[in-house]
Design a protein around this nucleic acid. Structure first.
Lengths: 225, 225
DNA sequence: TCAATCCTGTAAGTTTTATGTAAGTCTCAC
DNA sequence: GTGAGACTTACATAAAACTTACAGGATTGA
C-alpha cells in the first residue's frame, strides 16, 4: 500500500508521514509540484495525498496533471476551509475525497482506507499473507481460495494485522483503529476479539498466527512449518 | 442497470425516461449541466445519455468533464444533424456513441444495449450460477432450463447478485444500483426484497443461496451440497 | 372503464447473532 | 511463588436482519 504525500511544509510532512507509516502504509514524501509529477510518472501509487499551498505553483494546477497521468489513482486533497472553492469541487471526481484543515491524522487514515475500499478505487487490492487473502474492496477473506466468513470486528482486526504483518501492533493501536470515540473498549474486549479471530483462523486452516508479546502487543506472522 | 439522462427539455425528458424505465432501466433525469456533474460524482452509472443543447452552458463542455470523472462510463450523445461537428467526433472515444435527432426511443434503447454489449460492457451475456441462467438482453431467468417469472425489482437484484457472485454486496451498493434518486428506499425495503427473491429461488428449486453477512452485506453463492 | 391481480414499500413484531462484560483460569517473568 | 497480563468461557443485550401483514399504485384483461 503505497502513498505519495505532497506537502510543502516539511515539519508537518515529517509528522504526518510518520503516522501514516505507523498505520502500515509505505509513504513517499515530496515538497514541490515538480517532484510530485516526477514521482507520479515513475511509480505506481495507490493513493495520492495533495496538500494545497505548494510554493512553486498553485497547488490546484497540479491536480489535473496528476489526473491525466493516472486517471485511476484516487487523490485526497487537504485544504483550508476557504480553499474549498468550486475549483476543488469541480475537479473532485467522486473517486476522490477532500479533507478540511486542520485535521487529525487518524481522520486522514480513515479517508485513505475509505478511498481504498471503494469499488473501483484501488484496483485488485489484495492483502495476502500465507494462504490468507483479504480483498479490501468488498472485505472478503479467502483461505486457500475458499471464501470464509468473518464478522465486522474480526475483519477490522484482520485487516489491521495484515497491513502490519510481521510488525508489532500494540493494544493501543488496535483500540484506536477499531473503536470510535463514543465506543467503550476495555482491554479485555480486544483480548476476546483476538481470541475469536485466532480460533477462526485455526479452524479454517490458515497458515498465519497471531503471537502475543506480553506487555507490548501482538504480531501477525506466517507460521514457519 | 442505471442510466443518467441529461436533457433540458423537461417534457421530452419525461416521455423518454418513462420508456427507458419500461425497458427495465433505472433512470436518473437531470436538466442542467451542473446537476449532471453532481450526479456523476455521486453515483455509479452504466451509461450516460447526453442531449446537447443544455441551457446553462454549451452541452459539449460537459462531455470532457464527465469523461475525466468516469473514464470508463460510456456516453451516448444525442444531437441535431448540424451539431455533428468535429468536436463531437474528436471527443468520441470509441466507447461512446451518438444519435442524430430526431430519433425514436426504440433506437435509443438499441444503442444503449449496443454500448452495454461491447467488450468490457455490461450486457449481451448469459449470467449463470448453479442451475440459474439469466439472459441480460431480455432479462429472462431460467432455473433448470424452466423459464421463471420474476418481478422487475427481483430481476434487478438477481442480476446484481449474479454479476457479483461470490463477492460481498453491501446494502449501500444495492440501494444505489436499484433505486434512482427520486425513489425512496428504507433499509427495510431491501430486506423485504431480498426475502422475496430468496423465497422464489427456494420455491423454484434454484441451487443458489443468498447469504447475509451481518453489518456488511450479502453474498450470492452456489449452495455447496 | 372497471375490476382483478400483482408489485412493492411501510410498519410492526419476531428472531438471530455479534460483541462487550464479567469472572475465573492459565502462564510467564522475575 | 507471586502477580500482572493474557486467555477462555459463559452470559446479556442491543443492533441487524427476517418475517408477516397490509395498503396504495400500477398493470392487465375483459
Amino acid at each position: 500500500m503505497r502513498l505519495l504525500y505532497i506537502e510543502d511544509n516539511e515539519k508537518l510532512a515529517l509528522n504526518t508521514s510518520a503516522s501514516l507509516r505507523d498505520a502500515g502504509f509505505v509513504v513517499d514524501v515530496v515538497h514541490t509540484a515538480e517532484d510530485a509529477l516526477h514521482s507520479v510518472k515513475s511509480f505506481e501509487y495507490d493513493v495520492v495525498i495533495l496538500d494545497l499551498g505548494l510554493p512553486d505553483q498553485d497547488g490546484l494546477d497540479i491536480l489535473p496533471k496528476i489526473k491525466m497521468l493516472k486517471p485511476q489513482t484516487p487523490i485526497i486533497i487537504c485544504t483550508a476551509r476557504d480553499g474549498l472553492d468550486d475549483r476543488v469541487r469541480g475537479l473532485n471526481t467522486g473517486s476522490d475525497d477532500y479533507l478540511v484543515k486542520p485535521f487529525d491524522v487518524s481522520e486522514l487514515i480513515a479517508r485513505i482506507n475509505a478511498v481504498l475500499r471503494r469499488p473501483g478505487g484501488a484496483l485488485g487490492m489484495t492483502l495476502t499473507l500465507g494462504n490468507v487473502k483479504y480483498e479490501t474492496v468488498d472485505r472478503s477473506v479467502a483461505i486457500d481460495d475458499i471464501v470464509t466468513r468473518f464478522s465486522k470486528r474480526e475483519l477490522d482486526l484482520l485487516e489491521l494485522f495484515l497491513r502490519r504483518a510481521d510488525r508489532v501492533v500494540s493494544k493501543d493501536v488496535i483500540e484506536n483503529a477499531l473503536y470510535s470515540f463514543d465506543e467503550a473498549a476495555t482491554p479485555n474486549a480486544i483480548e476476546v476479539l483476538t481470541h475469536r479471530l485466532r480460533k477462526k483462523l485455526i479452524d479454517k486452516g490458515a497458515s498465519i498466527e497471531i503471537h502475543n508479546l506480553r506487555g507490548i502487543g501482538y504480531v501477525l506472522q506466517e507460521n514457519s512449518g
